[in-house]
C-alpha cells in the first residue's frame, strides 16, 4: 500500500478529441448518429427539452463552430451535443413521450458515459505513450472500469 488518489475529471480538449468519447458513449447507450438533421428541423414538432452543461469542460474551437452540433438518436429520444458560446460542452435531450425528469436523467446518463469514455481514452493513451503495461482491464457490474498497470523503473 502507498497512496490512493481520487481525481475529478475536467474535459478541456478540442472537438476531434472529444468526438471519439461521444461516439463511445453513443455506442454504449444504443444511440446512433442522426443524418437527417435538416429534415427534422423543418418539422414543426414541439418536444420537451432538457439541457445539461458539463461544468468542468471547455471545448477548444477546432473544427466545430459555436452552435454547431452532433445529433444522436434512439427511438423518439434525441441527444444533441454542442459547444455553447462560452466554449462549454452542452448535452440536450429531447423527445416525444418523455417527461422532463426522464429527459434530465437521459442527458445526465449520456454526460456521465461521455465523461467516462473521455477519461478512459486519455488515460489509456497516456499509459501507452509512457510505456506502461496494462496487465488487466475489466468492466465491473456497476459500469466502473478497472485498469491494472505495471511499470518497471530503474
Amino acid at each position: 500500500m502507498s497512496t490512493v488518489v481520487i481525481l475529478t475529471p475536467i474535459i478541456i480538449s478540442s472537438w476531434p478529441v472529444i468526438a471519439p468519447a461521444i461516439m463511445g458513449a453513443a455506442a454504449a447507450l444504443g444511440l446512433v448518429v442522426k443524418d437527417d438533421i435538416a429534415e427534422e428541423q423543418n418539422e414543426e414538432q414541439v418536444h420537451e427539452t432538457v439541457e445539461v452543461e458539463l461544468a468542468e469542460s471547455e471545448v477548444i474551437a477546432q473544427n466545430l463552430a459555436t452552435e454547431q452540433e452532433l445529433v444522436l438518436a434512439k427511438g423518439n429520444l434525441e441527444i444533441r451535443i454542442k459547444r455553447d458560446e462560452r466554449g462549454r460542452c452542452v448535452v440536450c435531450a429531447s423527445g416525444r413521450d418523455y417527461s422532463k425528469a426522464e429527459l434530465e436523467q437521459k442527458a445526465q446518463e449520456f454526460t456521465q458515459k461521455m465523461t467516462q469514455c473521455f477519461v478512459y481514452n486519455r488515460v489509456v493513451s497516456e499509459l501507452q505513450n509512457n510505456n506502461m503495461q496494462i496487465v488487466n482491464e475489466e468492466v465491473m457490474e456497476d459500469d466502473t472500469v478497472r485498469i491494472n498497470v505495471r511499470h518497471w523503473v530503474d
Binding site: 475529478t8 475529471p9 477519461v119
Partner: peptide, 12 residues
C-alpha cells in the same frame, strides 16, 4: 503497480 478505477461518472 497502479490500479486505476474509472467510475460511471468519470471520477478516477
Amino acid at each position: 503497480e497502479l490500479e486505476i478505477t474509472i467510475a460511471k461518472n468519470g471520477e478516477v
